[in-house]
Amino acid sequence: MVDGVWRGIASFSESVFCLEEPYNTKAIFGRVVQRVLELLTNQLGTVPFVQVGANDGISADHIHSFVKSGAWTGVLVEPAPVPFARLRENYRGVEGLQFAPVAISTSEGTLPFYFVEGDDGLSSFSLDTILSHAPKYEDLRGMVRTLEVKTRTLDAVCEEYGVSSPAVVAVDTEGTDDIVLESLSIEERKPSVILFEHCHLSAERSARLRDRLVDAGYRLIHDRHDALAIAPGTFDEAQVDFLADVVAVARANFPKAGLDTL
């Protein structure tokens, strides 16, 4: 909150990916993500995937249209009961989908999970991440509810649901995306594309995730909220260079002042 104006999570994010950029870079990055997913779908035909923090399958969802098309097969993971019910309904009749009502962590068991009554998008293991949105609400803390959820590693979910080699891994878990990816053997499974939200991560945690992906050969393209990691050999290198340059050029046009820098 600056001068009474909510400037968004990215305005105080510590993530190493969070750079100053025009607000419309988010839309440009979103189009780059869509292009990458189009290219991958054209290349593979059927795309095996896993989505963690699927919510209702629609809200703020980069992969919804591809999953809805029936061209993708995989598992959607969502531990909160209310959005999980809507998730199943929103994909009713789409073949090749499985639904996992669990949460992803680095160990198997149960953990307290926080959700906001009336705003399913704010569900997380991290209460601090949820409460960072408090300036947008009259009484956010009073809206928070807790439930015990079953936890699995992402490796275990991939094996159980028959998606041992997902081409796409999409994660949006409000502050625990790095933990989710820590529970996946990225170096062995080698997903072609990994999508994750970074803006809630600390500098240390986001840097550790960045370094792991770079060491595994992934090319990273990002805006102030989300990141796209493309595995080596997935596309022609010049094509990836072009997509990265599209976002870089948008970022280079950052205005030094003004309320459009969210």
Rank of each mutant, 00 (worst) to 15 (best):
A60V: 13
P83T: 01
F66W: 01
A71C: 09
V75H: 03
F84W: 08
I63S: 13
A71L: 13
D56V: 01
S65Y: 10
S65K: 15
W72F: 05
A54V: 01
S59H: 13
S69K: 01
S69G: 14
D56L: 10
V77M: 05
V82A: 15
D61P: 03
G53W: 07
D61S: 15
V75C: 13
P81R: 02
V67C: 08
G53C: 12
V77W: 10
A85V: 11
A80K: 08
V77Y: 10
P79Y: 02
W72K: 02
E78D: 10
S59C: 10
G57E: 04
W72H: 02
E78C: 05
V82K: 12
P79Q: 03
N55C: 10
F66K: 00
V82F: 08
A85L: 12
G74T: 12
P79V: 10
V82I: 13
A80H: 09
V67F: 05
D61R: 02
P79W: 04
A71E: 06
T73R: 15
I58S: 06
K68D: 14
G53H: 08
F84S: 07
I58M: 15
L76V: 12
S59M: 14
G57R: 04
P81M: 06
A80D: 14
P79I: 11
A54N: 04
P81I: 02
S59V: 14
S59L: 09
W72A: 12
T73K: 15
K68H: 15
G70R: 06
L76Q: 07
S65C: 14
G74A: 13
V82L: 11
A85F: 02
P79G: 09
G70H: 03
A85G: 09
F66H: 02
S65E: 15
K68P: 06
P81Y: 03
A71R: 11
S69F: 08
G57A: 08
G53S: 10
A54T: 02
P83H: 00
P81L: 06
W72L: 04
D61Q: 13
A60T: 07
E78V: 07
A85S: 14
F84Q: 06
A54H: 01
A54K: 01
W72Q: 02
K68M: 11
V82H: 08
K68A: 15
S59W: 13
V67H: 04
I63L: 10
I63H: 00
L76I: 11
W72G: 04
A60E: 14
T73H: 12
E78T: 05
H64W: 08
H64I: 04
W72I: 09
I63Q: 00
D61L: 05
V67P: 03
I63E: 03
L76N: 06
I63N: 00
P83K: 02
